[in-house]
Simulated assay, not measured.
Amino acid sequence: MSSGELRVVAPAGTPEVRPGDDLAELLLGLVELQDGDVVVVTSKVVSKSEGRLRAGSREESLADETVRVVARRGPTTIVRTRHGLTMAAAGIDASNVAVGTIVLLPLDPDDSARRLRAALRERTGRTVAVVVTDTAGRAWREGQTDIAVGAAGLRVLESFEGRTDAHGNPLAVTAPAVADEIASMAELAQGKLGGRPFAVVRGRADLVLAPDDDGTGARALVRAEGADLFGYGAREAVVRALAGHAADRAPFGAPVDAEELVALLTGPLAGLVHEVADEDGEVVVRPIAGAEQSVRALAFAHGWQEADPGTVADSSACLRLVPATP
């Protein structure tokens, strides 16, 4: 358990990090580690040491770092990266580097954390955890905070499920993302312009795992496609549902049940249809004239599809809808 006291040290004196630099050597020249410490390092210096520097602009590298676009607003593009992260410009950074140079996120931040942890263990004999951080915005919140994009040797989620509070109330879904909390706390000590890419958090040794256990990594904090409820921006969701490409099914989530689909078509969207019926797991819909595509888009967004696509030629015919398969 936590002692109720935490200490964060962000040492000054780190030189400009270059490709091939030994991060463990740089850190150990600045601070003496103790068992149970959590070492925090920014993804930028990890990327620099791993040679993830590129000439050019963020826009030129964005496509290669993007799995899919979540939303666009003017010059801002929010994407899902190969790491599963949802970030502006795929986390590509053009600050604190030479003009005309950008820094990409590490290829595998969890692996970067594991290798740094192993190097620190080998050279000091200390059992520590490592967190790799990056800065991200939050939906519905102004400003940014640091989050954990990589981790090793740390319990990244602290589950309270099954416990009770002081009043006897059961805790059902309380699971603090402690890796993210550590990342943001460390950033307060590091600052954005202080040239302090390392921090050591002391006082939560209970979260640090045994030397032979690197844990789940920060990847465990990433929600699976379709599980976050907000797979696209509001405008993009409309476009994707109307387009109906099979590859876009996952971000919309699992199919709803027939009862929920019928309730939509007979409730807020009743003006689109003449008749709706649930027939043994199929939803049979007779759309009004001109509403066929709207019904198809609604079905797509809720995980349903036509049982026999392309058979509806006019509004007198019916659409037979069934749950889509992955």
Rank of each mutant, 00 (worst) to 15 (best):
S3Q: 05
E5K: 08
E5Y: 12
V8Q: 08
V9I: 13
V9A: 09
V9E: 12
P11C: 03
R18E: 12
A24W: 01
L28M: 06
G29E: 06
L30S: 01
L30W: 03
G36F: 09
G36L: 04
V38F: 03
S43R: 14
K44T: 15
V46D: 11
V46L: 00
S49G: 15
R52K: 13
R54A: 10
R58N: 10
E60R: 08
L62F: 10
A63K: 11
D64L: 07
R68L: 15
V69H: 01
V70H: 14
V70A: 05
I78M: 03
R80P: 11
M87P: 07
A88L: 08
A94W: 12
S95R: 12
S95A: 13
G100K: 05
I102G: 01
V103D: 01
L104P: 01
L104G: 01
A113P: 05
L116V: 08
L116G: 05
T124C: 08
R126H: 09
V128T: 15
V130K: 02
V131P: 13
V131G: 09
T135H: 10
A136K: 09
G137R: 11
A139S: 12
T145V: 12
T145I: 10
V149L: 06
L154I: 14
R155Y: 13
V156F: 05
L157F: 12
S159L: 05
S159D: 13
R163C: 06
T164F: 06
H167I: 00
L171D: 14
A175I: 10
V178L: 04
A179G: 11
A179N: 10
S184P: 07
E187T: 14
A189M: 04
L193S: 11
G195P: 09
G195N: 12
A199D: 10
V201T: 08
R202E: 04
G203N: 04
R204N: 14
R204Y: 12
A205S: 15
A205C: 09
V208S: 03
A210V: 04
P211D: 00
T216L: 05
T216F: 03
L221P: 14
V222D: 06
A224I: 06
G226T: 13
A227P: 02
D228E: 11
F230K: 06
R235E: 13
R235Y: 14
A250V: 07
A250F: 02
F252E: 05
E259I: 10
E260Q: 13
T266K: 03
G271C: 04
V273L: 00
E275C: 01
E279I: 08
V283W: 01
V284S: 03
S294P: 05
V295E: 04
V295T: 04
L298V: 15
A299D: 05
A301S: 15
W304E: 02
Q305L: 00
E306P: 08
P309Q: 03
A313G: 13
D314W: 07
S315D: 14
S315H: 14
R320E: 07
A324S: 15
